[in-house]
């Protein structure tokens, strides 16, 4: 039965069987039903997503006119004809910028403290729990809390005073502040995840060269985790852009962005306005405008904006070639899952 050692390169004359994925034909019926259900849900999810995108595409493009981008909303009886959504777009940009400007440094600093320092441990655990709690708080609750805070007389400079002396409490500042809290958990989570991926030997190498911890963090770690930080910030931004409750309650719900006072930038930030989200809400049957066409058009723009931002996040998290933990075989979706599930 023994063969000589001279290797024959291929089995001449014999049939080669390359087995394919095993069929489920011989499975019991119960198992086959489960298998088909899995396929059905997968296909159904695809169909739903396609339906949503197509629907918004069709409706949005049919009602989208270039003039909408440059005209401010104008109150009129013929809502479907008059005005565009320039102000809401500007409002979205301002609010997102403000919210991110507050949340990004805070979030990164918090994540760095939690990951690199974390003493005393009790404080660290408390902060971790607090961040997790924020992630679970509905944005409505944040909104009405924000109203309470910014209605205090002491903070009247951040919005405007009404005729009877009480503080209005609704402004870009107020909404921006609360939006920052909204985005904080995402930024903290992404930055912590990125920091945990940096191998310890990088830190040790820097300490061995005599660098302080702060210097190490600033000069070594931050450049290394730039994609992770950026993706966290982008996630936070897309969360801010997509939120409506805080805007509805804290931005005053005026059609146009009305500044307060004479200072150029601060005046706008102290004033009220609208964003794309509140614009869509107000123009839908749930709001007062009842102009479906404008709602569709604005919703389409909003959707494209958010999807573009999420695609950017994907590119940032998926583009990394080297992964310290060796989980390079994972799909981006699964990495997204781990990112959100921060423990």
């Amino acid at each position: 039965m023994a063969t000589e050692l001279a290797p024959a390169p291929s089995p001449a004359g014999l049939i080669v069987v390359r087995p394919r994925r095993q069929s489920t034909a011989a499975w019991p019926l119960v198992d086959r039903v489960g298998y088909w259900l899995c396929w059905a849900t997968g296909i159904a999810l695809c169909l739903i997503a396609v339906a949503i995108v197509l629907f918004m595409l069709v409706k949005g493009i049919s009602y989208l006119r270039p003039s909408l981008f440059v005209q401010s909303p104008a109150p009129s009886l013929q809502q479907s004809q008059a005005g565009g959504f320039l102000d809401p777009i500007v409002g979205t940009v301002i609010l997102t910028a403000l919210g991110t400007a507050i949340a990004a440094p805070t979030g990164i600093a918090l994540a760095t403290w939690l990951s690199e320092y974390g003493r005393p441990p009790l404080l660290a655990r408390a902060v971790e729990s607090a961040i997790e709690m924020i992630a679970g708080i509905p944005s409505v609750v944040l909104a009405i809390f924000g109203l309470l805070v910014f209605s205090q007389t002491a903070l009247g400079f951040l919005s405007q005073k009404a005729a009877n002396g009480s503080v209005y409490g609704r402004s870009f500042f107020a909404a921006g502040g609360m939006m920052a809290i909204l985005a904080l958990p995402l930024i903290v989570g992404a930055t912590r995840e990125a920091l945990s991926q940096v191998p310890d030997r990088m830190r040790e190498a820097s300490y061995a060269l005599g660098k302080t911890k702060a210097s190490t963090i600033w000069h070594v770690l931050f450049p290394a985790i730039r994609p992770g930080m950026a993706s966290g910030v982008a996630l936070g931004m897309s969360r801010i852009i997509g939120d409506t409750a805080i805007v509805t309650i804290l931005l005053g719900a005026t059609l146009t962005n009305e500044g307060v006072g004479s200072l150029p930038v601060i005046g706008t930030l102290r004033g009220t306005g609208s964003t794309l989200t509140s614009y869509v809400y107000n123009n839908s049957p749930a709001g007062e405008g009842n102009a479906h066409e404008k709602a569709y058009a604005a919703a389409f723009v909003l959707l494209m904006l958010v999807l573009a931002l999420n695609a950017l996040v994907t590119r940032l998290t998926g583009g990394r070639r080297e992964r310290a933990s060796g989980r390079s075989g994972d799909s981006r979706l699964i990495r997204l899952g781990r990112l959100v599930w921060t423990r």
Partner: peptide, 14 residues
């Protein structure tokens, strides 16, 4: 026990 089939690209003759 045909466990080689779990790996993609496995082939058998004989």
């Amino acid at each position: 026990n045909r466990l080689t089939e779990v790996t993609a690209g496995a082939a058998r003759a004989g």
